[in-house]
Design a protein around this nucleic acid. Structure first.
Lengths: 335, 335
DNA sequence: GCTGCGCATGGAAACGATTACATCGGTCAT
DNA sequence: ATGACCGATGTAATCGTTTCCATGCGCAGC
């Protein structure tokens, strides 16, 4: 593969000059520039980014560590992030943590080894040594959707609490009184927020939230199945289940199906995060939708601000309830 | 950030020695090695991969260019690829082409600029200059799922033809005679294969495939909606629709819903590629499932063979029909 | 006719690793 | 005792860029 020297030789100039036209620095005669450019295209020369980055100490690359590629919410987020980054002249390297702390830290380290300019992360729950180190090192970093308490890192997310309150009101209005929730991993910030909002909304309606109605999940499909199984082993099972992410909602449906239970006749179901398929499930599923695209865009904006030496603050957007038939019929969902 | 020199200084040895222990070359006294190692961990030194790659001319990184991250088939594939690669000591950088030739070529070039060791690609349809150049340059390269005619590149895929034939037989047995198909982009190899298998299976049953029953799609949701709209503008619409990928099947369902049509009462539906949600849609959707995990693993195996100087051949796995209720009831789907 | 300046360009030192080759004791065979 | 050899380590070139500084040249000001 041709190098800058070959180009220089062919154009009859020095490598310095070639470099100058490539990075369009001023002070190159128009005619020289043209000669270089034709040499470049004749040799179909492409600069070696490794060498360039080594020298300039910047890669124009952002790292994105997401919790689970198989979760449509995160793939949509990743997509938005990539779009935004590309339009700002950055590329993105994605690491999939699969909800595992160890895998997440592996990716964080790999990304830092690659000398990415900045890190966008939706951290798995738990104490991440790698992320703490990165923050201490002053790596430009932004959290998106999830965060880690005690780290001074800007956060871009949607506040789901009002929407959760709406959801509880909706369920209450439809006559449900035995509401259960399936949580994410214990230390998950988003899950905790959702549980907290759920509990306090319940209290407002004078409803209890017994421990048995708190299903411990981990944001993955299988845990939705397990939690559901446990709910229905109870003498008095819940009459509505709120899954704090879409994959666990899938697990709930799978388990209900094997038990032969119907939604919403036997039990109602709602999920956090809306995905296209929720419209077409049997029945369509009530969900809380986040402004995913905008989350991605804002996160990239914040991160590039940091990378380019500007300051960046946290951003909080809002989520909203989309009522469908999975919680029963009312004037909003009947048609 | 600490460099190899700092480590060398701290351990009281030369950089060469440090490098030797880092890459565990033999011929370093045990005690020296220990000293170096403690220096490494005291400084929490991490080698600069850019410098290393520049020198060694290898990155231990694979590029993966997929057609659409929002398509669950590809994200599952990406996941499998990453797993397989990681277990072989490679990392992977994903580029999302979004079914656009230009974007695909952009990613191919970006990846080559990063000096990835090998390229795994599921090419968008059409003539890709970047891919042709890469192949000519002798970049280790493997196609997965889709391919480009006339390029001598190993291909890992599933042959869907027998399964398509099974699907047609299934539809025929259920009494359907007016079968329509929604294709991918015109030049798409997989789509063409599916259409061809569909057409020839139809012929075996003495059924025609009028042009009006071939909906031109592009593997994206919206095109499924459009094709469906056109089908139902026909004086005699089809009584069964086969979408050649899962996103277009989603589009079909969306359109049917706005038209108030029922599946399978008004029209049957089947899709290529099975995804978890197909079990829970209303009704569950008949689909042709590919061995996605294995495709990913085999593709990585083939690519690493190439990268490491071994030879690699093409692999063809098989897909199979999973009959559900979206095509009507028979003894297999009733319960 | 100098001096000084700006413009276009070239030479060479980085960046942080790997690695071919040199060096330097020490051991062993002759 | 001498030289060959070996094992452990160091020196320095190299990968392909960017960029600081030097250079040469033409021209304006005196």
């Amino acid at each position: 593969m041709a190098g800058i020297k070959d180009v220089a030789a062919r154009a009859g100039v020095s490598v310095a000059t070639v470099s100058r036209v490539l990075n369009d620095h001023s002070g190159v005669r128009e005619e020289t520039r043209a000669r270089v450019l034709t040499a470049v295209s004749e040799l179909s020369y492409r600069p070696n980014t490794l060498a360039r980055s080594l020298r300039t100490d910047q890669t124009r690359t952002l790292g994105l560590v997401i919790s689970d590629v198989l979760n449509p919410f995160f793939t949509e987020l990743a997509r938005a992030v990539e779009d935004a980054a590309r339009s700002k002249g950055y590329s993105v390297i994605i690491g999939n943590a699969d909800e595992q702390l160890a895998l997440q830290d592996h990716h964080v380290r790999t990304l830092l080894d690659r000398r990415i300019d900045g890190l966008l992360v939706s951290p798995a729950s738990g104490d991440s040594v790698a992320l703490r180190e990165a923050a201490l090192l002053g790596i430009p970093m932004v959290f998106v959707d999830r965060w880690i308490e005690g780290l001074d890192v800007p956060l871009v997310r949607a506040d789901g609490q009002p929407a959760v309150r709406d959801l509880v009101a909706h369920l209450y209005a439809l006559g449900h009184r035995r509401l259960a929730i399936i949580t994410g991993p214990v230390a998950s910030t988003t899950s905790n927020e959702r549980v907290h909002a759920f509990r306090s909304a319940l209290r407002e309606h004078g409803l209890p939230l017994p421990d048995a109605f708190i299903g411990q999940g981990d944001f993955q499909t299988a845990s939705g199945r397990r939690a559901t199984e446990r709910f229905f082993a109870l003498p008095e099972p819940p009459d509505a289940i709120f899954a704090t992410d879409n994959l666990m909602a899938l697990g709930v449906m799978e388990q209900l199906r094997t038990r032969g239970l119907r939604v919403p006749a036997d039990v109602s179901l709602a999920a956090f995060d809306d995905i296209p398929w929720f419209l077409h499930t049997d029945p369509p599923i009530t969900a809380i939708a986040q402004p995913t695209q905008e989350l991605g865009h804002r996160a990239v904006a914040a991160l590039t601000d940091l990378v380019e030496g500007r300051s960046a603050g946290s951003v909080t957007l809002s989520a909203h309830l989309i009522a469908r038939r999975s919680c029963g019929e009312d004037e909003r969902t009947r048609r």
